[in-house]
C-alpha cells in the first residue's frame, strides 16, 4: 500500500458524511437535479464526487467493483484503507464504479430479487460532465419532467422496465452528482 492511499479521506467524517449523504439523497430522490459533493480527494481517475460517495456509502459489508481505468492500484488501496470494502467482480458488487463504457455490459449487475428488490447494485458512473439536458426523465421525485445528460438511453430504459427490480445509478463529474433510480422512466428528449 502506498502512503498516498492514506490521504484524501474525510477530515471530520461524522459531519462530512452527513452532508454528503444529504446531497446524495437529494440527488436520488430528485432525479435530474445536480448536487454538490466535496471533502474527499481520491486518487486518479476517480472524481471527487465518486470518492465522497464511496466514503459515505461503502464499508466492510459492501463489495465494490472497480471497472476499467478505475481498477488501478492506487484506487484499490485507497478504497481498502478508507472503507474496508472487499473488491469483487461485477456480478458480486453492491457498488460498481467506472466510466460508462467500462461498466458494460451493465446486465452483469445485481438487480435484486423479486422478494428483495433492495438487494441490487448501485452504479457510480463517472462522466466527463453533467448537465440538466438530454433524455427526458419522468417518475417519482420529478414534478413534471426533468432532463439529464445520460450516456445512453436504451440500457436505462431496459433497467427501468424491470421495476421494481433493477440497479440504481449515480452519475459523477468533478464535484457534481446526479441520481437515477430504477423508478425513473426515460425517453429521448
Amino acid at each position: 500500500m502506498t502512503p498516498e492511499a492514506l490521504l484524501g479521506g474525510f477530515a471530520d467524517a461524522p459531519v462530512q458524511s452527513a452532508h454528503a449523504f444529504r446531497a446524495s439523497l437529494e440527488a436520488l430522490a430528485r432525479p435530474g437535479t445536480l448536487q454538490h459533493l466535496t471533502g474527499a480527494i481520491p486518487p486518479a481517475p476517480m472524481s471527487v464526487a465518486a470518492g465522497v460517495l464511496v466514503l459515505t456509502l461503502c464499508d466492510g459489508t459492501t463489495p465494490v467493483h472497480l471497472a476499467g481505468g478505475h481498477d488501478c492500484g492506487p484506487l484499490r488501496d485507497w478504497i481498502t484503507f478508507h472503507t474496508g470494502a472487499p473488491l469483487v467482480a461485477a456480478e458480486a458488487a453492491v457498488f460498481a464504479i467506472g466510466a460508462w463504457g467500462a461498466l458494460q455490459p451493465v446486465s452483469r449487475f445485481a438487480i435484486g430479487q423479486p422478494d428483495y428488490p433492495d438487494r441490487s447494485a448501485t452504479l457510480i458512473i463517472e462522466m466527463p460532465e453533467l448537465t440538466a439536458e438530454g433524455p427526458r426523465l419522468t417518475g417519482p421525485g420529478i414534478r413534471r419532467a426533468a432532463h439529464l445528460s445520460l450516456p445512453a438511453i436504451t440500457e436505462f430504459a431496459v433497467n427501468s422496465a424491470l421495476f421494481p427490480l433493477g440497479f440504481d445509478c449515480f452519475f459523477t463529474a468533478g464535484q457534481q452528482v446526479a441520481g437515477l433510480p430504477r423508478s425513473t422512466r426515460i425517453e429521448a428528449a
Binding site: 467524517a13 461524522p14 459531519v15 458524511s17 452527513a18 449523504f21 446524495s24 439523497l25 436520488l28 430522490a29 459515505t56 456509502l57 461503502c58 464499508d59 459489508t61 459492501t62 428488490p117 433492495d118 441490487s120 448501485t122 417519482p140 421525485g141 421495476f163 421494481p164 440504481d168 433510480p181 430504477r182 423508478s183
Partner: peptide
C-alpha cells in the same frame, strides 16, 4: 458520536434509505 449513532450504523441506514427511495413504498 454526532447524532448518537456510530458511523458504520449510519452508513448502513443511509444505504437502506437510498434503496427505499429507489423503490418507493417497498
Amino acid at each position: 458520536n454526532f447524532a448518537y449513532l456510530d458511523e458504520q450504523t449510519k452508513c448502513m441506514i443511509r444505504r437502506a434509505i437510498l434503496k427505499g427511495i429507489a423503490v418507493p413504498g417497498y
